[in-house]
């Protein structure tokens, strides 16, 4: 690229301008001066809109996810680390070894470069920790008022080893359901950090890369029939998805599911059900009962996994698949919410 094709002066701006998304010098500088150094080593070949990757020899897992969280930095993480970890976790839930990620940025005119630099650094750190590389990306800038500062879309690919067969369709009656820790922290941390909530809490997001957990389970020979990370919709939604996908009945022992006192307190005040609150570092695994103890020991040994527990069992289908929670007086049906949980009135 040569000459002044971009109408915006190519200066070291303190803020993102429309020109940063124009495909010209400013954007080039943004990529070369900010993203690439932050990301560290990239793919084997120079990347443009897409990256040419070495053939994997086996099966590849491929996923994408967009991140529009507000605030961009929250207790326990930020949108950058979340965009990496979220996609890595999606790959891990396929039983894949996460390998490569793409990152698409939608920047709002006026975003502070310093904030973007912090988030990019956070992405680089999260990727390095997860053992994945950010190999390609895309940048657009929207006018002020047309975005929430920054949106990130990531896509990822990973290799899937032979013999891996993970999904609701592989769940069997008799399997046990394991949960990797307490639930509800990410969603409540985000809500509390948003303006106008009017209460302070020390709750931090549970955001964590789940790939090492899955790897440890697989290396220990645990037969992983189904894995789900408990993101939007939370624990309850994932259980409903697994049960319906499997066409089986999952019975959950409510008392076995850990919710921290801080999260429970916030949920009581706001009228939210913590089982439907988003997590970013929690999974459920359906495994044969024979593997349950071994798997549970591995889950508990992970950072933040002290509260991992066996929370339920898979039984034969009763008509269509459904998830039930054992309550004091009997079982209640778990359901997906029709929309976002909204705080109740009184």
């Amino acid at each position: 690229m040569s000459g002044a094709v971009c109408p915006v002066p190519a200066t070291d701006a303190e803020r993102i301008e429309l020109g940063h998304g124009g495909g010209g010098a400013l954007m080039h500088r943004l990529i070369e001066g900010l993203f690439r150094p932050a990301f560290g080593e990239t793919g084997p070949e120079p990347a443009h809109d897409g990256a040419v990757l070495p053939a994997a020899g086996g099966r590849l897992a491929f996923t994408t996810d967009s991140f529009v969280v507000t605030p961009l930095e929250f207790p326990g993480g930020d949108i950058g680390a979340l965009a990496v970890i979220g996609t890595v976790n999606d790959l891990a839930m396929c039983g894949a070894q996460p390998l490569y990620l793409s990152a698409g940025f939608i920047l709002e005119e006026g975003l502070e470069i310093a904030l973007l630099r912090r988030i990019a650094a956070s992405m680089g750190q999260a990727a390095a920790a997860a053992g994945v590389r950010l190999v390609t990306g895309d940048t657009k800038v929207v006018e002020r008022g047309k975005g929430d500062g920054l949106y990130i879309t990531t896509a990822g690919v990973g290799s899937v080893g032979p013999g891996t067969a993970i999904g609701p369709q592989f769940v069997r009656a008799g399997d046990v359901v394991l949960l990797s820790g307490d639930v509800g922290r990410h969603g409540i941390a985000i809500m509390a950090a948003r303006e106008g909530l009017g209460f302070k809490t020390a709750i931090e997001s549970d955001m964590a890369c789940l790939a090492p957990t899955v790897r440890a389970l697989a290396e220990a020979g645990v037969a992983l029939h189904c894995l789900r990370d408990l993101t939007r919709g939370g624990l309850a939604t994932s259980l409903v998805e697994i049960a319906t996908g499997a066409g089986l009945t999952i019975r959950i022992d409510e008392a076995a599911v850990t919710v921290s006192d801080a999260v429970r307190g916030a949920c009581e005040v706001l009228g939210l059900d913590p089982w439907y609150v988003a997590n970013e570092g929690r999974l459920v695994a359906c495994v044969p009962e024979a593997d349950a103890d071994r798997a549970l020991a591995i889950l508990r040994a992970q950072p933040g996994g002290a509260a991992a527990a066996m929370i339920g069992r898979v039984g034969p289908a009763a008509g269509h698949g459904q998830a039930l929670a054992e309550a004091i007086g009997g079982a209640r049906v778990l359901d997906m919410l029709s929309g976002e949980q909204l705080p109740r009135i009184c």
Binding site: A327, I328, G330, A331, R344, C346
Partner: peptide
């Protein structure tokens, strides 16, 4: 209505 939901959520009506 909060009582209604609690009754059903915990299965109190079934007891």
């Amino acid at each position: 209505g909060g009582q209604t939901h609690s009754l059903l959520r915990h299965g109190i009506d079934q007891m």
